[in-house]
């Protein structure tokens, strides 16, 4: 394994995008960064720039207004990249499945690697999902 892929494995950077969630999962992602869960100790850093990020965390269902923004962000990220959907509504549409403006799960817009169910998903599950997504990044180098 080269130095690039080692460092990517050891310190994956996240990009978080809210696609229309209720904020429940978003604040759990933030909570995962703060002292009790502290994923920063694993080298995981939340970034604001899609070109810096290795893993895209999406919360909420895709809708007619923002799916283009989501696709744009996904395309801006450099390979290798992983996509994690956090929350039941992002996985399938969930409680919002019959809302008029909702398209459904995120996988209708971009390819998804890891699904995290839960309403809202717990921080432990989110940390686990990031670790699973790293598996994909690891395979890329080989």
């Amino acid at each position: 394994m080269g130095i690039l892929s080692t460092s990517r494995m050891k310190s994956p950077w996240l990009l978080h995008f809210d696609c229309g969630s209720c904020n429940g999962c978003d604040i759990e992602i933030l909570a995962a960064l703060t002292p009790l869960y502290d994923i920063e100790r694993f080298g995981i850093v939340n970034m604001g720039n899609p070109k810096h990020a290795d893993v895209l965390l999406v919360t909420g269902p895709a809708n007619h207004r923002n799916y283009r923004v989501l696709r744009n962000l996904y395309q801006q990220m450099r390979d290798p990249k992983g996509v994690i959907v956090v929350g039941t509504c992002g996985c399938t549409g969930g409680v919002f499945h019959n809302c008029p403006n909702v398209l459904g799960g995120i996988d209708k817009v971009i390819p998804v690697d890891v699904y995290v169910p839960g309403c809202a998903a717990r921080p432990e599950a989110i940390i686990d999902a990031v670790v699973l997504a790293l598996g994909k990044l690891k395979a890329y180098g080989k």
Binding site: D18, G20, N63, N98, C99, N101
Partner: peptide, 22 residues
């Protein structure tokens, strides 16, 4: 308008007891 889901409309489609959860 980026995260408009149409909950008001969905509330008209659901049973009124289900609406608590949405």
């Amino acid at each position: 308008g980026y995260i408009h889901r149409g909950i008001e409309k969905a509330a008209e489609l659901n049973d009124f007891r289900q609406n608590v959860f949405i």
